[in-house]
Simulated scan of single mutants.
Amino acid sequence: MLDIVIEARKASLAPGMDVRRILPFRLRRMVGPFIFMDHAGPVHAAPAASHTMDVLPHPHIGLSTVSYLFGGQVTHRDSLGVEQIIRPGEVNWMTAGSGIAHSERFEDPAALAGGTLEMIQTWVALPEKQEEAAPAFNNYKPEQLPIVTDTGVWMRLIAGDAYGLRNEVKTHSPMFYLHAVLEQGAKITLPTEHTERGVYVAKGTIEVAGRNYTLGQMLVFDKNAEPVIVAKEPTTLMLLGGEPLGERYIWWNFVSSRKERIEQAKADWKEGRILLPPTDNQEFVPLPEDKSKPAGNPSPQALS
Rank of each mutant, 00 (worst) to 15 (best):
I4N: 07
K10W: 09
A11V: 10
S12G: 01
A14R: 12
G16P: 01
M17W: 13
L23V: 03
R26L: 04
M30V: 06
M30H: 15
V31P: 04
I35L: 04
A40V: 00
A40I: 01
P42T: 09
V43N: 07
L56Y: 13
H58V: 00
P59Q: 07
F70W: 15
G72V: 00
Q84E: 15
P88T: 07
W93D: 03
W93R: 11
M94L: 12
H102W: 06
E107K: 14
D108E: 09
A110G: 03
G115C: 00
L126S: 03
P127N: 09
K141M: 04
L145R: 13
W154M: 09
R156H: 02
G160C: 05
A162W: 13
Y163C: 06
G164D: 05
G164A: 00
N167Y: 08
E168A: 03
T171N: 13
H172P: 01
P174G: 12
M175K: 06
L178P: 03
A180P: 00
V181D: 07
G185V: 01
L190W: 09
P191W: 13
E193S: 11
T195Y: 14
R197V: 02
V201D: 05
N212T: 12
N212P: 03
L215M: 15
Q217R: 11
A225E: 13
V230P: 03
T235N: 15
G246I: 06
E247I: 04
N253G: 02
F254I: 08
F254P: 03
F254Q: 11
V255W: 10
S257L: 04
K259G: 02
I262D: 02
I262V: 07
Q264P: 01
Q264G: 03
D268Y: 10
W269Y: 09
K270T: 05
G272P: 03
T279Y: 14
D280M: 00
Q282N: 12
Q282C: 04
P288L: 10
S292T: 12
A295T: 08
